[in-house]
């Protein structure tokens, strides 16, 4: 595969972009930062499937497309299905000798939001990974159904306010913990699974390249800060993402072949989770005295999970 040099940002910046501007994502939306980086990480041909969600509705608003590559829009559940189908067809045509350029390098990629990945497209993703298609699935995890106005998903963290898990007099927002999708995908035995973040551009680009190079189904969960539903100023997308990775709310790690866990980023100075929560409107209510216990729980969960990751890494099992 032809990978782009990511030795440093100057070299990386010489790529010819294939994701165009004048899409209609909100100003400061992290979805497009992640998509740009994936497309810039390789110069192979790309076949990309995107299911319904902010990314899809904003980059294919008739009569415009923002994609300079083969791109398929498909229904909410089926990013993985479409990518898997295209990959299977490609393989079959290669076998039959009906491809115009059988040696051209092609990579198959699927983008889904957390709503589609963690909830509604879950069984189709699971199926495509179990069948072993050679593709990379990237979840743009903004922890809510943003495109339809911010409903809770199973990726929404405990304590967050969403339109269907509201904070108010009787509730502190969502009551359930975020689903551990990375572990679930690793349990499928996928050869490469990771959680990455756009503020750590080099780690993310490396992870993308690894996933694209790896034969078989790969899954990457990316934290995608959503200025509209998380309620922060658009200019702060990277700052918020820094807080996410440096409070360990979003630890950055990979799992190879379902078991070998590597932590990819260790903050020099781990910040208390309050700093991350206080920077976003969706957690505002947690700072009322009666909700102090929720913040304590979030912090404890973070500490426990970090401990778990470190032990898993050490154990090499």
């Amino acid at each position: 595969m032809a990978i782009t040099s990511i030795k440093n940002l100057k070299e990386f910046s010489t790529v010819n972009e294939r994701f165009e501007g004048a899409h209609l994502l909100c100003p400061g939306c992290a979805h497009s930062m992640i998509v740009r980086e994936l497309m810039n990480a390789t110069d192979d041909n790309l076949v990309i499937a995107t299911n319904t969600g902010c990314l899809e509705v904003s980059t294919a608003v008739y009569p415009y497309t923002s994609w300079d590559t083969s791109w398929i829009h498909i229904g909410f559940e089926n990013a993985a299905t479409a990518a898997a189908g295209a990959e299977a067809m490609y393989k079959a045509r290669k076998r039959k000798g009906t491809l115009k350029d059988p040696d051209a390098p092609v990579k198959f990629v699927a983008f889904g939001g957390d709503g589609s990945t963690y909830d509604i497209g879950f069984q189709w993703l699971s199926g495509a990974v179990e069948r072993g298609h050679d593709f990379t699935y990237i979840c743009l995890d903004n922890e809510n159904y943003a495109n339809t106005g911010g409903q809770r998903s199973s990726a929404t963290p405990i304590g967050a306010h969403t339109t269907t898990a509201q904070a108010g007099r009787v509730s502190y927002g969502k009551k359930q913990k975020k689903k551990d999708m990375v572990a679930i995908m690793a349990a499928h035995g996928a050869p490469y699974v990771a959680q990455l973040a756009p503020n750590k551009w080099k780690i993310m680009a490396k992870g993308f390249q690894k996933a694209l190079e790896t034969e078989g189904p790969c899954f990457i969960n990316t934290v995608s800060a959503c200025t509209t539903e998380w309620k922060f100023d658009p200019k702060d997308t990277i700052h918020i993402t820094d807080l996410a990775t440096d409070t360990l709310m979003f630890p950055i790690y990979e799992i190879i072949d379902g078991h070998e866990l590597n932590i990819l980023y260790r903050p020099k100075n781990v910040l208390p989770v309050e700093e991350y929560l206080a920077a976003q409107g969706r957690y505002k209510h947690l700072f009322k005295p009666e909700n102090k216990h929720v913040i304590e729980k979030i912090q404890k969960d973070i500490n426990d999970f970090w401990e778990y990751l470190q032990r898993r890494e050490e154990a090499r099992v």
């Binding site: 100057k10 070299e11 990386f12 910046s13 979805h31 990277i238």
Partner: peptide, 19 residues
């Protein structure tokens, strides 16, 4: 020319050529 602005612009709006 550090290219921080280039890598994080969500709208492909930083024009960078030859580093």
């Amino acid at each position: 020319d550090c290219q921080n602005c280039w890598v994080w612009c969500p709208d492909t709006s930083i024009i960078s050529r030859d580093k």
